[in-house]
Amino acid sequence: MDVVLRATAMFFILFLLVRLLGKRELGQMTPFEVVVLVVMGDLIQQGITHNDFSLTGATLAIVTFAFWGLVLGWLVYLFPRLKGALEGEPRVIVRHGELLEANLRRDRMTRGEVESEMRLAGIARMADVDWAILEPSGKISFIKRDGGGESRQRNETSPT
């Protein structure tokens, strides 16, 4: 039972940590950050199981993480108002060709990163973007302007 309680505590600590990292951080990890994440995984395992290398301890920790992931998924499904807090909300980063600097700062994104994603979506100029939305998954959805300024096409790209 001790493993389950420690796994539960670590699940929520990791959940909060991932939410604090922001949307784009997970999609744009450097090789060093991947190594840090792997090392964190090992440290977490040791913290949960107190170096319990038994199959039972590992199984309990994994099942506990899966259980809480499932519970949070069901909570979002049953109570849609929780979605913003648990999964995040989409954020508009470009409106009618204008970059919204305050929204970029909230997610620690630069103009260059948005422009790079625009190029990957086949968009050459900021003025060609009617809307750009940073999705909770970290992807950016672009809605291009047509000749009259109306929305016409939607492209999605994932930050690299």
Rank of each mutant, 00 (worst) to 15 (best):
F15Q: 04
L16H: 01
L17V: 10
V18Q: 11
L21K: 09
L21C: 14
R24D: 00
E25C: 10
G27T: 13
G27H: 04
Q28S: 15
M29W: 05
M29C: 08
M29D: 09
T30Q: 07
P31Q: 09
F32R: 14
V34P: 02
V35I: 13
V35E: 05
V35F: 12
V35Q: 06
V36K: 10
L37P: 01
L37A: 15
V38T: 13
V38E: 05
V39E: 07
V39L: 14
V39H: 03
M40L: 15
M40G: 12
G41D: 06
D42P: 00
L43G: 10
L43A: 11
I44L: 10
I44R: 01
Q45G: 14
Q45C: 05
Q46G: 02
Q46F: 00
Q46K: 04
G47A: 03
I48K: 00
T49P: 00
H50T: 10
H50A: 13
N51T: 06
N51R: 08
N51A: 07
D52I: 08
D52L: 11
D52F: 08
S54P: 00
S54K: 06
S54W: 00
L55Y: 03
T56S: 11
T56F: 05
T56Q: 10
G57W: 04
G57T: 12
A58V: 13
T59F: 06
T59M: 07
L60N: 05
L60G: 02
L60H: 05
A61T: 02
V63I: 12
T64R: 06
F65W: 14
F65E: 06
A66I: 12
A66Q: 03
F67Q: 04
F67M: 13
W68V: 11
G69W: 01
L70W: 11
V71E: 01
V71Q: 02
V71R: 02
V71Y: 03
L72Q: 02
G73T: 10
G73L: 02
L75H: 01
L75I: 06
L75W: 04
Y77I: 00
Y77V: 00
L78Y: 14
L78N: 06
P80Q: 07
R81F: 14
R81P: 14
L82T: 15
K83G: 00
K83L: 00
A85T: 04
A85H: 03
L86N: 00
L86Q: 03
G88K: 08
G88M: 04
P90S: 08
P90W: 05
P90G: 08
R91Y: 02
V92H: 01
I93L: 03
V94P: 04
V94H: 06
V94S: 08
V94T: 08
R95E: 15
R95Y: 11
G97R: 15
G97M: 03
L100H: 01
E101K: 02
E101A: 06
A102G: 11
A102P: 00
N103R: 09
D107P: 07
R108Q: 11
M109F: 04
M109G: 09
R111S: 14
G112E: 12
V114S: 04
V114K: 01
E115K: 13
S116K: 09
S116D: 10
S116N: 09
E117N: 14
E117V: 13
E117M: 15
M118Q: 10
M118H: 03
R119T: 11
R119W: 08
L120V: 09
L120N: 13
A121Y: 13
